[in-house]
Nucleic acid binder design. Structure first.
Length: 469
RNA sequence: GGUCCCAUCGUCUAGCGGUCUAGGAUACCGGCCUCUCACGCCGGAGACACGGGUUCGAUUCCCGUUGGGACUGCCA
């Protein structure tokens, strides 16, 4: 097995969107496969007909694509592979490793209760185990599991794990409705697809001995197991919808960059010394199961936000421009001039934590009319500034070249003459031009807005202030 | 309840017996820079759950306690 090509998989069940935890499992499998030049398979586990949906499948595929986690094979759908599971089931039946069980769910429920009442384990009591029953309308097929001894495996992240077989019971392999159960389908798929490494959430640790028993009953070699700790919500319970934004697509829609999400996910549970930032290539190069931690972690949304801000700061302006445009359009802006968007992006890169924030912060560049933030209006657009503003308007009217450099000169000369601080005039002007008290640098704003727009907005502010007197 | 897993700053984590008066990141608090907001820089506060061993020496190894999580389905 050691010299065999590595094969990993991501097997979501399409019962909902892809959440952070699932995405991390997918990422680890993907990284491990890429690192070892192996194969990464996508498999949709839709044996639960009632809960599976096509929308969920599509959302999962879209999430993986957005993250850039490409698969080499699949997506396979378990619902289309029943003949294979059936074939393996027959093998087990033929070899006496599995048997038909005629107990009804109600009977089982009853006996489970009784066992609990007596303080015994609520497991299947093995009633039909040696009855030699055949198929029947509501029969299920169970694995004839070993009842003594131990089932052990060496987990690649947790180390040796062992279970007493007395703890386990004869699990159902085939349901009375004619469908395979999860355990059978998983094991048969993993065998037939040639899986070498099973990297999954540690909520599966307890399932592992059952699955190992199926491998053994089938006489198949075991894969390596690596159980990654769960991701918890802030209340330390398993991450779920209750914890707010947990879906990958939600982060996309909030204006996160896929690299930032990937980076954050990788660092949740895995580490490489003190390094915090990794490019995809670096992740592939440096990822290893040995450095995956054993303890569960809480998803740190603040840190992701900061990482996102860093990636935005460092991203190529052209790329940011293309990705921010949908966020501007979402705000009703049409026919955007890409060159102008790029210039706006250039000024907002270092002050935006998300693309959504960037879009919000750049609205004033594109709107015909801006509105003043109430507080900013009250604080800076006061009558006492009228004089200075009129004077600077005059100078700007006379300024031919509206470049940052020349504008800066105009202002420096102006404050020198007037013996005032730049802030004195800069803040009121900022509000006049952007509507806000915080914005990119005044001169870059003016350059991008252009002379015409700048003059227009200053004049508008002047009438606005005049009305207050 | 039973089984299994886990336990370093609020959070993510480094640490694989002495290098630890425990390092980084984030968030928080000061300061500097400055036309605002950011960025950047400097500084601050903040953790080895507890109790036994093993050892010359434990954050690191073993056991127990406590705490947390997962599983306990004809769901995956």
């Amino acid at each position: 097995m050691d010299n065999k090509k590595v094969v990993t998989r991501f097997p979501p069940s399409p019962t909902g969107y892809l959440h952070i935890g699932g995405a991390r499992t997918a990422l680890f499998n993907w990284l491990f496969a890429r690192k070892h030049k192996g194969k990464f398979i996508l498999r949709i586990e839709d044996t639960d007909q009632a809960r599976s949906s096509e929308e969920a499948t599509n959302a999962i595929l879209e999430s993986l694509r957005w993250l850039g986690l490409d698969w080499d094979e699949g997506p396979y759908f378990q619902s289309r592979r029943y003949h294979i599971y059936r074939e393996y089931l027959e093998k087990l039946l033929a070899s006496g490793k599995a048997y038909y069980c005629h107990c009804t769910p109600q009977e089982l429920e009853e006996r489970r209760k009784q066992a609990m009442a007596k303080g015994l384990k609520p497991k299947y009591d093995g009633k039909c185990r040696n009855l030699g029953l055949g198929p029947a309308p509501h029969a299920v097929v169970r694995l004839k599991a070993p009842q003594t001894g131990k089932t052990s495996f060496n987990d690649l992240v947790k180390g040796p794990i062992s279970f007493n077989n007395e703890e386990l019971d004869d699990l159902v392999l085939w349901r009375s409705d004619g469908n395979p159960t999860y355990h059978l389908a998983v094991v048969v798929d993993d065998i037939t697809m040639g899986l070498t490494h099973i990297i999954r959430g540690d909520d599966h640790v307890n399932n592992t001995p059952r699955q190992i028993m199926i491998y053994q009953a089938l006489g198949e070699p075991l894969p390596y197991y690596a159980h990654v700790p769960m991701i918890l919500g802030p209340d330390r319970t398993r991450l779920s919808k209750r914890h707010g934004a947990t879906s990958v697509l939600a982060y996309r829609d909030m204006g996160y960059l896929p690299q930032a999400v990937l980076n954050a996910l990788a660092r949740l549970g895995w580490s490489y010394g003190d390094q915090e930032k990794f490019s995809i290539d670096e992740l592939i190069e440096k990822f290893s199961l040995e450095h995956v931690g054993k303890s569960p972690g809480i998803f740190n949304a603040e840190k992701l936000l900061d990482l996102n801000a860093q990636y935005i700061r460092e991203s190529d302006t052209g790329y940011l421009t293309r990705t921010v445009i949908p966020f501007l359009e979402k705000r009703g802006l049409k026919n955007l001039d890409e060159t102008k968007v790029a210039r706006a992006v250039e000024t907002l890169k270092i002050r935006s934590k998300t693309l959504d924030e960037m879009a919000e912060g750049s609205l004033f560049y594109f709107q015909d009319e801006i509105s003043y933030e109430e507080k900013a209006d009250r604080k800076f657009l006061k009558p006492n500034i009228l004089g200075l503003m009129e004077e600077i308007l005059e100078r700007l009217e006379k300024t031919e070249v509206f470049s940052q450099k020349s504008l800066e000169k105009v202002f420096l000369d102006f404050i020198e003459e007037k013996q005032i601080k730049l802030g004195k005039i800069a803040q009121p002007l900022r509000v006049a031009l952007t509507g806000k008290s915080a914005s990119p640098g005044l001169f870059e704003v003016m350059e991008i807005l252009g002379k015409e727009k700048v003059l227009e907005r200053i004049r508008k502010a002047l009438t606005h202030i005049a009305r207050k007197t």
